[in-house]
Amino acid sequence: MKRSSSSVPLDEEVESQRCQTSDAAIDMQPAKDDQIMDTEPPPPTLVTSSTFLSAHQTSPLPIIDLRSPSEFTSSRLTNLSSPLVNLPFPSLLSSGLGCSLPPRSVPFDLILPSSPPPLTILSFFTSKLSSATNSSRTPWLVRNYIITLSTFSTEFLTDVPQSIPGPRLWKPSVIVEEVLCEILREGGEGSVVDLGSGAGRDVAFLAENFPNSHFYGIDNHKGSSKRCLPLWCSRGVSETTHLVNINLKKLDVFFEFLEGQRPVRMCYAVRYLNRPLMAELGKSMREGEVFAIEHFVVNEDGSFPFDHPRIAEVLQLDEMERFFPEKDWTVLHKKIVKDSDAGRSLLNFCVRRK
């Protein structure tokens, strides 16, 4: 991992936690833009092996196996068209692997371990209150569950280890998958920097697809290491992903770090808006470097009829062009899409320095 020649340190504690399981429990919060469901989802149903198999042959859903890694390795389901992911239940509570769960609008089935009791596990997924804040949250859509694989015939079981990385139950941001990947396929050298990397899923996705590049997630949240590092480890990208704890409001600290990582291929931000930072990037990024953002934007009439985010945290139309003017930047992509949560407008904007 490259380090800045300046005095800006990468967090040593963060680096030492890589591929380790944290002992600190975290609450599985919904994403800040999750919406409360208007209708009550049906409760999870305990089913037999034959019913489970029949359902997955006619209408396959993702399957999450909550058993321990040793149990999963010794005997797991196979010969099904459904994606199967092993997320040991204790890891969901302690290491931040909750970011590997599917979106809360996507139904899935569960394979439960023998302990803790099923009610304890199911309440984790179906509770509509956050244990940390006691505020409302959207439950996950668990359809069916089973507790043992002992009744499955051998044709549906295997002890062959699953490859790493396993199936992915989440999708990266639109701009990452549809725009940044295309740019990175052009080739070239340089670091890729995620501004406000959150749970680290976009970093993981890019690192899986471009194993010869190095990716830096910048985030100042104290829980970032508990979320990002277990995810990156489980996706097999620990060697090329790096979490850096920097307060992005301290522009001098960030740009000192950025200088130490050059050449820089691109900087991008997904649902993170820091106007002073964007303005300075517009002035200081170098020829050939790319900037991209996916963020909430007002409608064509200037309205934004949603509670979250606050209007002050929403982009105005053509605001990014003021930070990245045409005389200095070439627009590679500009498109407004709707988010899947509530139909809010999202600007996808990508430019390259001339």
Rank of each mutant, 00 (worst) to 15 (best):
F306V: 02
H308L: 12
K249E: 11
Y216T: 14
E287K: 15
L258R: 09
F255R: 00
E319K: 10
M278V: 00
V237E: 05
G260N: 07
R227S: 14
C228R: 02
V314H: 01
M278A: 10
R271M: 08
I246D: 03
N247A: 13
R322Y: 01
V270C: 15
H221T: 02
S225G: 04
E289A: 08
E300F: 03
H308W: 15
R227H: 13
G288Q: 13
R310S: 08
E289Y: 05
V298M: 07
E239G: 14
R275T: 01
E321R: 15
F304L: 11
E319R: 10
K250G: 01
V244Y: 11
M266V: 01
V290Q: 04
A312E: 15
R286Q: 15
A269M: 10
L251F: 01
F306I: 02
Q316N: 09
E256F: 00
L229G: 01
L258C: 07
A312H: 08
S213Y: 14
I246E: 03
A279L: 03
G302F: 09
I311P: 01
V253T: 11
L248W: 03
L277A: 06
L281R: 01
F306Y: 14
N212F: 15
P230A: 15
H242N: 14
R235F: 12
D219W: 09
L229C: 13
L251I: 04
T241C: 15
R271F: 11
S213I: 11
N212D: 13
V298R: 12
E256Q: 00
L229K: 15
F304S: 07
G260Q: 07
L248V: 10
S238C: 13
E300K: 13
Q261T: 13
I246Q: 08
L317C: 00
L281I: 02
E239V: 01
P211W: 12
Q316H: 06
D219Y: 05
R271S: 09
K250W: 05
L281E: 00
E313Y: 04
N247R: 10
S234E: 14
V270L: 11
D252N: 10
V314W: 00
F215S: 12
V297E: 07
S284V: 03
P263R: 10
G282K: 00
Y272C: 10
H308Y: 05
L251E: 06
G260T: 10
S284L: 07
V298F: 12
A292Y: 13
E287P: 04
L243G: 11
H295S: 06
I218S: 03
D252H: 02
R275M: 02
Y268K: 08
W232E: 06
E289S: 04
D219V: 03
R262S: 05
I218A: 03
S234N: 13
F323H: 09
Q261R: 15
G302L: 08
N220H: 04
E300C: 02
S303M: 10
H221R: 14
